[in-house]
Simulated assay, not measured.
Amino acid sequence: MGAIRFALFRLLAAIPTLLLVIAIAFLMVHAAPGGPFDEERRLPLEIEANIAAAYHLDESLPEQFWRYLSGLAEGDLGPSYRYREYRVAELIGAAIPVSLALGAIAMLLALLVGVGGGIAAALAHGSRRDRIISALAMSGISLPVFVIAPALVLLFAVYLGVLPASWSGADGGVSRYVLPVFALALPQVAYITRLTRASMIEVMNSDFIRTARAQGLRTASVVRHHALKPAMLPLLSYMGPAIAGILTGSVVVEQIFGIPGLGQLFVRAALNRDYTLVLGSVIFYATLVILLNLLVDMLYGFLDPRIRQR
């Protein structure tokens, strides 16, 4: 029951945050120059007025915002201004599976490689292996996604020719996931490696680890049964920002590789001043980050008994 109350409290506390995000996004998209129905060839004033009235764009901003919140309370994200035969929920629903698949695979890869690399570096603290892993991790932190992605395309698609350079250029198999996933995962691998290394070094120097070693346990057994769980607590706290980084990074990666995901949909909506589609994308991203942070907090409580007792 305690966990349920905690989850409900956090969800209720997240509602004001989500409303603030929606309000800021609403004001920003309406403050941008141009409009969703601006064309190179200007329409007659009568037609513009009819279109604005049909989409309630002739109302004041407070009236539009209240109308949008009223529809949102009923689960309606509204119609798309650019793709007029579709609702926003339909467009986002079609793009979500691709983006979530990329993000999930990239996060899993980052965890496997980052945790493994961090443990390997910590157990060889001060050695050549530790210095090499730390140098590689620092290099990964220094390189942003918009540099890593073109470099991967240049190496593996242009020079070596072993992987497709774009999503549409693949044969529909797993090969089209490889470069985007690596572009998303590599920066997070670097952060997770350094965080795991620092946490593992601290835990391995703790008194309870010295006691376990004094009992004659092997290093592998000490790490697996005693050190790994407390060493993962700082990493678990980082998972919320890490997932947010994967999500925001997917906007750049999907543009570079031409992936029909939510990131590319968001960029096109912003360029087209498709107000409702931009707002729907922002709401999805914000809700996902809030829910994932809630999940991280709950997992933290399971791993740390002190949190459960509180």
Results as ranks from 00 to 15, higher is better:
G245A: 07
G216I: 12
F302A: 09
G93M: 02
P16V: 14
R273A: 05
L163M: 13
K229Q: 09
L277H: 00
L91E: 00
V181Q: 09
Q255M: 13
E46N: 13
L217P: 12
D171P: 14
P187E: 13
V181T: 06
G263I: 01
V174L: 08
P16S: 06
A185C: 07
I47Y: 02
V296W: 09
A73D: 06
E90V: 10
L136N: 08
R41G: 05
A49P: 03
P97M: 09
T196Q: 07
T276Y: 08
F266P: 00
V113E: 04
G169N: 09
I96W: 08
F6P: 04
F6Y: 14
I148F: 14
P180Q: 03
A3Q: 11
D207C: 11
H225W: 09
A53Q: 10
G245C: 06
A95F: 01
I51L: 10
R176W: 07
L262I: 08
G116T: 08
S237N: 15
V222G: 14
S281C: 08
F208V: 14
L299M: 15
V145R: 01
A135I: 07
I22T: 11
M107I: 12
Q255C: 09
A165W: 00
V296I: 08
F156Y: 06
A95H: 00
G240M: 10
I259A: 04
L8M: 12
A170N: 10
E39G: 15
I4A: 15
Y177R: 06
I22D: 09
A52M: 03
D130K: 08
F6N: 10
A220T: 03
R82T: 04
D76S: 02
R218G: 13
S60C: 02
R176F: 06
I105D: 03
S99H: 00
V88P: 00
I51D: 02
F37P: 05
Y86G: 02
E90Y: 05
R308C: 13
G169W: 06
V289A: 06
Q264S: 13
D38Q: 08
E202V: 01
P230W: 15
A137F: 07
R194G: 04
A14V: 11
A104D: 11
V147H: 09
L27Y: 03
L179A: 08
I148P: 02
G280Q: 01
V88D: 00
P180R: 03
G71Q: 13
M138V: 13
A286G: 05
A198L: 13
F156S: 11
L295P: 02
I96G: 09
G114K: 03
M239N: 08
Q215S: 12
S80Y: 00
V253H: 05
I148S: 01
I133V: 12
V189L: 04
Q309G: 04
G172P: 03
L152R: 02
V289R: 14
L112M: 15
L27P: 10
I290H: 03
I290W: 01
L27G: 07
M204G: 04
A32V: 09
L228M: 10
T196Y: 09
L136Q: 14
I15L: 05
L295C: 14
T17H: 10
L291A: 11
I148H: 03
